[in-house]
């Protein structure tokens, strides 16, 4: 397993009021993302445990795109990855941000 950790400045704060959200499963070509609203609203961290070694530059690029496009400020994102492709990672990141924005039950 390779462990990667990124702290980035997020231009937009995450919407909604939910404290956490989780999406995806850890399987071949898939990943889970746990989002927790625990940080300052201009910061986003991403901690990754991945079965596929040597893709740090790709992760960095996907995360840079993600914080530029989505409202991710204040979120600590934790990822368990089973070797997902970058498009799947981008999809799950978008989904978890959407999920944490949903009104609370």
């Amino acid at each position: 397993m390779e462990h990667l950790s990124y702290t980035v400045t997020a231009p937009r704060a995450a919407g909604g009021t939910r404290r956490q959200a989780i999406i995806g499963v850890v399987a071949s070509g898939n990943l889970e993302v746990l989002a927790e609203r625990v940080l300052a609203t201009d910061t986003c961290t991403v901690d990754i445990a991945t079965a596929a070694r040597g893709f740090a530059p790709v992760w960095q690029a996907v995360i840079a795109d993600f914080v530029a496009l989505r409202a991710a400020g204040g979120l600590r994102l934790s990822i368990n990855d089973g070797g997902a492709r970058p498009d799947t990672v981008a999809l799950r990141l978008a989904q978890v941000v959407r999920l944490i924005e949903e009104p609370e039950a």
């Binding site: 397993m1 499963v25 746990l34 990855d81």
Partner: peptide
């Protein structure tokens, strides 16, 4: 014991296998 508690398998890491938070 939701995923935020990260109560994961203590064994999978010995085999260098991915864990899931729940």
């Amino acid at each position: 014991i939701g995923p935020e508690q990260r109560e994961r398998s203590p064994h999978l890491r010995l085999f260098d296998l991915p864990e899931q938070f729940d």
